[in-house]
Write a protein that binds this DNA or RNA. Structure first.
Length: 414
DNA sequence: TCTGGGGTCCTAGGACCC
DNA sequence: TCTGGGGTCCTAGGACCC
């Protein structure tokens, strides 16, 4: 007996574009691209179906998209609004099931096990019909209350549900009955399976495996060349037998990290525009401030600080140092500078710098748990709450003043 | 497809301890 | 001081996702 389809993957269609259309209804029916101003740098983070008709795809550079879709509207995007609407959609889903797991800003998994009895109506042919009706009600509610289109897939496991939600787009709901998973997946290109990216796809196609049906039937040794020990897991997912539970919340979307659990990371990175290259040290100081500030806002300290460098030609390296947990700008900057001085190849042009905090520990809101440097930073945070983030900056940081400070002084912006 | 920025997860090797 | 194996922590890199 196959497990019943009770896992739902709910996805907000062209999410960023849909939110922009709430603010400017004249965008409805037009080609819209979110990710940057026309001709600017950056990549497409969301494209309307009208824009996709021109060949615009998410992840493509804004420059290429500008060339493909000359009549499209290009918008920079506003993350705070997307976050707000994402939370509102989640609140609606939680009216129907307590087991909701956000997988990203526009995607949630919902576990409906046991809910078929709760929502059953005489007119429902069976439990599947009940769940299908409930999920349709959810997407209709999201459309009515928030004005946002959504799609959903319902299946016996996560990856099948995710694939189904893709097949249901736009504005559709698709339920894959128990036992029909394999035949639904078989004709699809391997890339459609969550977990198979461009690298695995290329390796599979080179070996003559183009569809998920072919993957299921493929020789174990051949698949091992591509997936290593993951062969059995991937083959099961391709046959429609994926993970049957929604699992834990991704840490980044959790309100607070449980005490003692080492989860999550906080990072900021910046790619240089052609002419501004060479300012790596200055940019780095700004990034340190930003990640430290985000850590304090989350009430966490980091034991590990990582410097990321990308050189011309895309060669990328990461160097990290682990020690005492900190959320202090000055201390993080000190550690990052040390890594930078030690590992940077001065002969090569730097294309990107990044700073990441990981090995996070809960510090709590109590000031007692912060040291002097951190408390000073928190005082600065309070000023920022009143006057905005750029009101104060570490001396020598990216958008701060030009003063030759002691590396630890804050300067008002002028 | 000459490629942004935020993440998670996995692997593998080395250090160190018992 | 030559030796085993397991556990844990740290570092680095890479695939993948949205």
């Amino acid at each position: 007996m196959d497990p019943a389809p009770r896992i739902c993957c709910l996805d907000l269609d062209t999410f960023f574009v849909s939110v922009e259309r709430l603010f400017d209804p004249s965008l409805v029916g037009r080609a819209v691209v979110v990710g940057g101003e026309r001709g600017g740098r950056g990549v497409v983070t969301s494209a309307s179906y009208e824009a996709r008709a021109f060949g615009v795809r998410s992840g493509m550079s804004i420059r290429d998209a500008s060339a493909l879709a000359p009549t499209a509207v290009f918008l920079p995007g506003r993350h705070d609004e997307y976050t707000r609407h994402s939370a509102a959609a989640r609140e609606i889903v939680e009216r129907y099931s307590p087991l909701v797991r956000a997988a990203s800003i526009d995607e949630q998994y919902v576990d409906f096990h046991g809910c078929e009895r709760l929502y059953q109506r005489p007119s429902d042919r069976d439990g599947d019909a009940t769940i299908l009706r409930v999920v349709r009600e959810i997407t209709a509610t999201i459309a009515r209350e928030l004005g946002l289109p959504a799609s959903a897939g319902i299946a016996s496991n996560k990856s099948m549900a995710k694939v189904a939600s893709g097949l249901a787009k736009p504005r559709g709901v698709l339920l894959v009955p128990a036992g029909r998973e394999a035949e639904t997946l078989a004709p699809l290109p391997v890339r459609k399976l969550p977990g198979i990216g461009p690298v695995a796809e290329k390796a599979l196609v080179e070996r003559g495996v183009a569809t998920l049906g072919a993957l299921v039937a493929a020789d174990h040794a051949l698949l091992a060349q591509v997936f290593g020990r993951r062969v059995d897991e991937v083959r099961r997912a391709a046959a429609g037998h994926g993970e049957g539970e929604v699992g834990r919340e991704r840490p980044a979307f959790r309100e607070h990290d449980p005490v003692g659990e080492r989860v999550g990371s906080i990072s900021n990175e910046r790619t240089f525009v052609e002419r501004r290259r060479g300012d790596a040290a200055v940019i780095l100081a700004g990034l340190c401030e930003r990640v430290a500030w985000r850590a304090r806002r989350r009430g966490v300290k980091a034991r590990t600080v990582t410097l990321k460098l990308r050189y011309e030609g895309f060669e990328t390296l990461a160097r990290s140092a682990t020690g005492e947990a900190t959320a202090c700008d000055v201390e993080i900057h000190r550690r990052v500078s040390e890594l930078y001085g030690r590992h940077r190849d001065g002969a090569r042009a730097v294309r990107l710098v990044g700073v990441a905090l990981s090995n996070l520990e809960l510090a709590g809101a109590q000031l007692l748990l912060f040291d002097q440097g951190e408390r000073r930073a928190i005082a600065v945070d309070r000023v920022r709450e009143k006057f905005g983030y750029s009101a104060l900056h570490l001396a020598g940081s990216a958008d701060g003043g030009r003063d030759e400070g002691d590396g630890g002084a804050y300067h008002g912006r002028r």
